[in-house]
Design a protein around this nucleic acid. Structure first.
Lengths: 203, 203
DNA sequence: TGACAAACAGACTAGTTGGTCTGTTAATGT
DNA sequence: ACATTAACAGACCAACTAGTCTGTTTGTCA
């Protein structure tokens, strides 16, 4: 049978909740995300929801741990590892992301930064989780730059940690401006300047 | 009489509401700001509040128009106008703001960017107001750079508009990282790199 | 096949929240 | 002094929201 919609699949159900929650949190933020909205979106009920998650907060934390962290891992950490030249790698990622996520990215910004900005001042647990992801990201950029120094594509004098922080910060700033403007124009202008900065790290 | 707390001063009352609302919105965002919280903070009542503002939304818009816009005007537009050398001016503002706003800035970030990130995807009116302020800010940086080109402190080849956008973006990114980390360390590291970028615009 | 637990269904609740409505009090102009 | 209105006071309400509780159904394993 093809239409086996009545069959139970707890793992899939949990995933659906997680995905719907991510979409809601991405657009409205954690606080403005409504459990009821997730329920009508997934066509599930209160019973199903609270069977899989003890609370809205637990769901929020699970979204960070199981969805968000994986996205950064996939988009940045793994991608950068593929390139010998970090400048080429970072440039490639910078152009891949907007095209991969499409219009949504210009409208909704960076899901990690969105949540970090909302939650950092009001919840230490959320902030800790989000900030740790930021540092995984920064470290992956820093590592790429270090490898570049070892293979002679990056100037030896470059402070890789400081540069990595700035690259992530500049990128987040560019995404923020893009979101405020609701147009990819801002992203392209900023990307140009970031690339200029990246070239200045070259040998 | 010194203690004239019973006297009525509608302008001052309105200001108190506006200031309290700004503080709440700065910390929690617009959506999570509660009218009741403003009332207990200002020790006013529902009657007073809804006499001065027809709705929470109108209050939010007033905070943007009357508080936020003024802050950017004061912090950036007026400050930059005082300097002949735009690089010196931007550097000075970059260091003035965190020291002026103190610990709050590292914890709560940039009030303009906070609101823009929260509201841009879900409310066109808010986004329009916030984005306009961003452009006033960008234009003031752009104008400073143009004056620098005229008086020979900035390279003639520099795209002042693009550079101005990037400076604001990089600054917002730096503030975001600082807020996520809850430490001024991020701000200082990024400021260093921004200054490096600024020097590259020099003659 | 029959017990037993996991997976779900959905009515219900207690606490919030923005906003309304009917007053009361202070200023202001005549 | 008196009328009139702006500025406020605060009880009240309807809609909403996270979470609970009592079931019912489905899978699993002996």
């Amino acid at each position: 049978m093809a239409a086996e919609s009545k069959k139970r699949d707890p793992d899939k159900t949990r995933r659906r909740i997680l995905d719907s929650a991510f979409a809601q949190m991405y657009k409205h933020g954690y606080q403005a995300t409504r459990v009821d909205a997730i329920l009508s979106d997934t066509e599930l009920t209160k019973g199903a929801f609270y069977h899989h998650f003890p609370s809205k907060r637990a769901l929020g934390e699970a979204v960070i741990d199981e969805v968000l962290a994986g996205m950064i891992e996939q988009m940045w950490v793994r991608s950068l590892a593929d390139y010998v030249d970090p400048v080429v790698g970072i440039k490639a990622v910078l152009q891949m992301i907007p095209s991969m996520m499409g219009q949504q990215f210009a409208q909704l910004g960076c899901p990690l930064n969105n949540l970090a900005q909302e939650m950092s001042p009001i919840d230490e647990v959320f902030r800790g989780k989000l900030n740790r992801i930021f540092h995984v990201w920064i470290d992956s950029v820093s590592d790429a730059l270090k490898r570049g120094q070892e293979n002679g594509s990056i100037l030896p004098g470059v402070d890789t940690h400081g540069a990595a922080i700035f690259i992530v910060a500049a990128y987040e700033g560019a995404v923020s401006m893009t979101k405020s403007e609701q147009s990819n124009e801002m992203m392209m202008i900023c990307a140009e300047q970031i690339e200029l900065y990246l070239e200045s790290l070259r040998c």
